[in-house]
Lab assay of single mutants.
Amino acid sequence: GGTTSGLGELPSGWEQRFTPEGRAYFVDHNTRTTTWVDPRRQQ
């Protein structure tokens, strides 16, 4: 941990993952979708 950059926890059902290249993306298990956009930035 320690790399949350002050955004806090992800919404319920979300998970942060990384591509083999090390790029972060976000998985929404509620809708079984993925996005490059941090859901915390859409609030």
Rank of each mutant, 00 (worst) to 15 (best):
P20A: 12
G13C: 04
T33E: 06
G1A: 12
G13A: 04
G6W: 08
P11F: 00
G6V: 12
D38I: 02
L10R: 02
W14G: 03
V27Q: 06
P20I: 12
E15N: 03
T31R: 07
G13R: 05
D38L: 02
R17N: 09
P11K: 00
A24Q: 10
H29T: 07
G6R: 11
G13M: 03
Q43G: 15
L10K: 03
G2M: 15
P11S: 03
T19M: 05
F26S: 01
Y25D: 00
E21A: 08
Q16S: 08
T3P: 02
R17H: 07
R40D: 01
Q16H: 09
Y25W: 08
R17P: 00
W14Y: 05
W36R: 06
A24N: 11
E9A: 13
Q16N: 10
L7T: 11
S12G: 09
R23G: 12
F18Y: 13
A24E: 11
G2Y: 10
G6D: 15
V27C: 09
H29V: 05
Q43S: 12
E9R: 05
V27W: 05
E9F: 08
S5R: 09
N30G: 09
S12N: 12
G2A: 10
P11M: 02
Y25V: 03
Q16E: 12
R41H: 15
R40E: 04
T33N: 06
T31E: 08
W14M: 01
T31I: 04
S12C: 08
F26H: 02
G2W: 08
R40F: 01
L7C: 13
G22E: 05
Q16K: 13
A24V: 11
Q42Y: 12
T33D: 04
D28K: 01
H29K: 08
P39D: 01
R32N: 12
S5W: 07
E15F: 01
P20W: 05
A24R: 11
S12W: 06
E21D: 15
R40I: 04
R23P: 08
W14Q: 02
G13S: 04
E21Y: 01
F18A: 10
T34S: 09
G6A: 13
L7E: 12
T19S: 13
V37L: 11
H29M: 09
P11L: 01
T31F: 05
L10W: 05
S5L: 12
G8T: 09
S12P: 13
W36T: 05
L7G: 09
T3K: 14
Y25P: 00
R40N: 05
V37Q: 07
E15R: 02
T31A: 08
R23D: 15
P39R: 00
Y25F: 08
T4A: 10
R32Y: 06
T35D: 02
T34C: 08
G6C: 14
P39F: 00
T33M: 12
R41A: 15
V37F: 13
T31V: 04
G8K: 09
E9P: 09
T19Q: 07
T19P: 03
L7S: 10
L7A: 12
T33H: 03
F26A: 01
V37W: 10
Q43V: 13
H29Y: 08
A24M: 14
T34W: 02
E15Y: 02
G13W: 03
G1F: 04
T35Q: 05
P11W: 00
F26E: 02
V27A: 06
G8H: 12
F26T: 01
G8N: 12
Q42V: 12
T4Q: 09
L10A: 02
A24Y: 09
